[in-house]
Nucleic acid binder design. Structure first.
Length: 593
RNA sequence: GGCCCAGUGGCGCAAUUGGUUAGCGCAUCGGACUGUCGAUCCGAAGGUUGAGGGUUCGAGCCCCUUCUGGGUCGCCA
């Protein structure tokens, strides 16, 4: 009778449609059977509509409706009617109307599912992942994926409006031993040779600049075979871009504009531009991390100078060994910290960050610092601490005496934990900032390694430092930080051979090795490479932050578990011997347990 | 690889801290009901506590091993 399966969706009918004959398709979200009258909540991507079936609708319709169960797929033909006086449902946009059915058609029966999309308690995550098609029917999951789609569209529009062109780069590429562990793809044609999936399109986009494409952008899938976290998946999506004839300010300015647009469209907030900038050194000193959560204070205070004046061995010893004594202040909440809680925090900094212990002081009503260790510390030093931290009665001080690294990591860990626990910020609040001037190099055991990648340009004023003092050299690198998450990072690249050679030399990358690994880029740089720079934004993380979620899996339709498995498809799986044979691969027998 | 948390009918939780027959809500199945929207009411079925081993007169609970999921450190240029 009807040529079309449906005339409307389940989210669009309103009072203005009253009297119309329509056909809806969808899933039975819920049915309420009153014997004579049956109410069905029909659900699809767009919303829910209430369907009424009663004896006036015909026996066949009533009989079919009676047998419907949750998640059955149905098609309903009927007339849009106003709900009875006072029976509107204000929770639904379609709540003023209902569909009086005259035909009820079961399109497909649903087995009793392990859980229902509408149920109040969320099932365990492994079950949600195994039955992802059911989990994705949940309103929040649907909402997140819709918003993700809208965010990506908005990004693409922005860059298109700014003259960027979208160019795809290969997924099958070449392994570069630096950086994260690669996912490898064996070559059938080339015995013993492998492709690597891209960790990022880094080298290709630089080549595109050499090719003159000027402004490139891509929504790029990236792969890194490293252990997972709440904000890390083995495959993830970057908004990757590169620009020619620009400096760091130009790139950051472009992203400032993007963030302002996204914040306005999706959060309804007006960002003040330019976004605040913080140097790497400042970030480490004040927050102990290169990605600080700036929604609250609780800044780190360095009291190493005072520690040098005490005989107390823990403090003095740390400083004498070239370490630091640094701490944070919990304002007015000392009473919230039981001895047990402080013990837990001590275990936390010991276990997770290798701290030797946690020193703490309570500020007494008379303003004096009290601690189990305060009797070991000279009065002037205690007073100095109080002044340095600008303490008030009721404050709590937490101090670490350790290496720079441990104090940074430990205090950052404490600050993040306590900031959330004490509710020092509104979880809905958003803070955008840049961290700039990263070091060019860091020491890994005895050798220098690139902090970002070996093509990162140093600040021009730091060029002489490459020879004299590499550790002091700062890069033209910038990270976008949102709420304590690294939401993106980029650099201005080296575009001249001389600087590139110097950097390689420092990184102990011989010309031969360099030629072998990325000879094509080095060649390219000699054929008219423009100055260029770019950035990559973590789309999954940005979606996570913009939707207020605390893990990245909920922003991805089909994510992997912590052990990098897909519970729905059971990937990765074994393959047939024939396939292995074709690829010239032998699988080792796992060691006996 | 280290540390931490969790695993009990299909789902979410409980079990007085080692003591009778493992309990509740939702879902499922059957019945009743013409206005519900987390419908309601009556009834039924359904678990040996992730797996293996140990301690004990007795283990969901204690110990060891292991599997799965999650958090985190290392790792992630």
């Amino acid at each position: 009778m009807n040529q079309v399966l449906r005339t409307h969706n389940c989210g669009e009918l309103r009072s203005s449609n009253i009297g119309q004959e329509v056909t809806l398709c969808g899933w039975v979200d819920k049915s309420r059977d009153h014997g004579g009258t049956i109410f069905l909540d029909l659900r699809d991507r767009y919303g829910k509509t209430q369907v009424v079936v009663n004896p006036d609708c015909g026996e066949a319709a009533l009989r079919t409706a009676k047998e419907l169960r949750g998640e059955d797929v149905v098609r309903i033909h009927g007339v849009v009617e106003s709900r009875l006086e006072g029976k509107d449902n204000s929770k639904l946009p379609t709540g003023e109307i209902e569909l009086r059915a005259n035909r009820v058609e079961l399109l497909n029966r649903c087995k009793t599912p392990p859980f229902f999309p509408g149920q109040e308690e969320l099932p365990s995550e492994d079950l949600r992942l195994k039955f992802r098609y059911i989990d994705l029917r949940r309103e929040t999951m649907r909402g997140t994926l819709v918003k993700r789609s809208e965010i990506i569209k908005s990004m693409r529009d922005y860059f298109a409006d700014n003259g960027f062109i979208d160019i795809e780069t290969p997924i099958l590429g070449r392994s570069t031993p630096e950086g994260a562990r690669d996912y490898l793809v064996p070559s059938r044609v080339h015995w013993g040779h492998f492709f690597a999936l891209p960790q990022s399109p880094q080298l290709y986009k630089q080549i595109l600049m050499v090719a003159g494409f000027d402004r490139y952008v891509q929504v790029a899938r990236c792969f890194r075979d490293e252990d997972l976290r709440a904000d890390r998946q083995p495959e993830f999506t970057q908004l990757d871009l590169e620009m020619s004839f620009v400096d760091a300010d130009d790139v950051m300015g472009m992203i400032d504009g993007l963030m302002a647009k996204l914040a306005q469209e999706f959060l309804g907030i007006e960002l003040q531009l330019p976004l605040p900038r913080l140097t790497y050194d400042e970030a480490m000193q004040r927050y102990g991390t290169d990605a600080p959560d700036l929604r609250f204070g609780m800044e780190i205070v360095d009291c190493s100078d005072l520690a040098a004046q005490t005989e107390f061995r823990v403090f003095r010893g740390a400083v004498d060994q070239g370490g630091f004594v640094r701490g944070i202040k919990v304002e007015q909440r000392a009473a919230d910290f039981s001895r047990k809680r402080i013990d837990e925090l001590t275990e936390f900094v010991k276990n997770d960050f290798g701290a030797k212990g946690l020193a703490w002081f309570r500020v007494e009503p008379d303003g004096k610092l009290w601690s189990p260790i305060s009797k070991n510390i000279e009065e002037p030093v205690l007073q100095g601490l109080a002044e340095k931290f600008e303490t008030q009665p009721g404050d709590l001080l937490l101090l670490l005496a350790d290496s720079w690294d441990v104090t940074c990591k430990g205090l950052n860990g404490l600050r993040k934990t306590l900031g959330a626990e004490l509710g020092l910020y509104d979880p809905k609040q958003m803070h955008f900032s840049w961290v700039v001037e990263f070091p060019m190099f860091e020491k890994d055991e005895d050798r220098w390694v690139a902090m970002h990648h070996p093509f990162t340009a140093p600040r021009t004023q730091d060029l002489p430092l490459l020879e004299s003092n590499p550790s002091a050299a700062r890069a033209q690198a910038y990270d976008l930080v949102i709420n304590g998450y690294e939401a993106g990072g980029g650099t201005v690249r080296i575009h001249d051979q001389l600087t590139q050679s110097k950097v390689f030399e420092l990184l102990s990358i011989t010309p031969e090795v360099a030629k072998d690994r990325f000879g094509f880029l080095l060649d390219g740089l000699q054929y008219g490479a423009p100055p260029h720079g770019g950035i990559a934004l973590g789309i999954d993380r940005i979606v996570m932050l913009f939707t207020g979620l605390d893990n990245i899996r909920d922003c991805i339709a089909f994510p992997k578990t912590q052990r990098a498995m897909d519970l729905m498809t059971q990937a990765p799986g074994t393959v047939e011997d024939k396939q292995l044979h074709e690829l010239h691969i032998q699988v080792e027998t796992p060691p006996a347990k």
